[in-house]
Design a protein around this nucleic acid. Structure first.
Lengths: 226, 226
DNA sequence: CAGTGGTCTAGACCACTCT
DNA sequence: GAGTGGTCTAGACCACTGG
């Protein structure tokens, strides 16, 4: 095993420093920290980079400098809400892609005036004639499909992973490219097993947590059935 | 807007190079790429760093060098399994922390000889006397608590986010420090509402996906009840 | 042993923003 | 103009791995 890298020692010190400062407090400049810690600016920057990725610091160009990130209230977004009840309202974009074959519904998820995520849904255009023109953006997508096109949705098995922000998504969410995001994706089928909707959501994990539900388990039952 | 950084130009070139190579192909050394692109090694490394984070390249120390990442099969881990059915077996470590007040059960999650995650559970020692000595590592933690200590668990509301690997976790999982991981955490209460267990899991998202379940929704019912 | 990635340094120049 | 973060350089030393 190797020794603890200096940049990680710097990170530890920075975390201590950070814990004592209230939100929004300007942080010492990188050059000053480098001198204080007796390290090169490059090394200190590597530690700062990680703290920025973790959402604990914010950096702005110019005279504004680095500051303690406001401890934003983490918005708790439930999986059920994400799938069923999201009404995109004004920020939705509907475009047809793949030679008119597919309709893409892209919506920015906003909480308290801040973007917290992007949802992108793909539908077969042939299954939903006139969708692009008739979609009511104040209605959750799945409810709209259920009501207007008589879709009956079956069980869902979404999966969750991490992804790095592409430059495009980074622009939408106000983060730097290559920022890690929480990714939730699913394929929705109707009751006959026909695929209906392919969606995924990218969430800023510094602003939103995904909450899930696991019903209570009776281990006695589990045990006797095994 | 600023010009395109050189490291991003390097990344584009590397992606072109990478697209033509089959899985596992050795990649040119960093020093060679730097000379080829007319950049410093540091700049090329920044581009390589992102490709490694995206799982497109793997880097190994020593003579082995960089190579095109094999497209691994992703293990699908269900949320229910993660919470209820994980039997850590031989890799579990039990330690008491915080002045004997708390017991920490740490287990490495393995699939096919590869580590895919770490689970850490915290229990109040006073609630579970003798736990550290008596815990049977072949039994899932929650079942053990249910059977040996008569715990009846209530509903669970885990939450999901991203986290960066600390050097310690990185060592356990075989990734670089600061690799983005999928984090699943929960607080478990018994049926009387007393907190019992505080756990979290860190998953390598290049090897494992978290799968969840959403029961079918009847939008007609939802609509009429609103 | 030679060659690889991992880390670190001391400097440099730029774009940006506040005063 | 002064100070900030963003990028880049040329070099150095180390730990590790294969022949």
């Amino acid at each position: 095993m190797s020794a603890i890298p200096r940049y990680f020692q710097a990170k530890t010190k920075l975390l201590d420093l950070l814990a004592e400062l209230p939100d929004g407090t300007p942080f010492p400049p990188e050059r000053e920290l480098a001198e204080l810690f007796g390290m090169s600016r490059t090394t200190v920057r590597k530690a700062l980079d990680e703290l920025v990725l973790e959402g604990k610091l914010i950096r702005r160009t110019g005279r504004q400098g680095t500051a303690v990130a406001p401890r934003r209230q983490l918005h708790r977004v439930s999986l059920d809400t994400l799938v069923n009840d999201l009404a995109p309202r004004e920020s939705v974009v509907v475009r047809t892609v793949g030679g008119q074959d597919v309709v893409n519904v892209e919506a920015l998820l906003v909480r308290g005036d801040e973007p917290i995520g992007v949802r992108s849904a793909y539908l077969r255009a042939a299954r939903f004639p006139g969708f692009a023109e008739s979609y009511d953006r104040g209605v959750p997508l799945r409810r709209f499909l259920a009501e207007q096109y008589r879709v009956r949705f079956g069980d869902l098995h979404p999966w969750c992973t991490t992804a790095l922000a592409t430059p495009r998504v980074a622009g939408l969410l106000g983060v730097r490219p290559a920022t890690p995001l929480l990714s939730v994706a699913w394929m929705a089928y109707d009751l006959r097993g026909v695929p209906v909707e392919r969606s995924w959501v990218l969430l800023r994990s510094d602003r939103a947590q995904l909450t899930m539900h696991v019903p209570r388990t009776d281990h006695a039952v589990r045990r006797s059935s095994a």
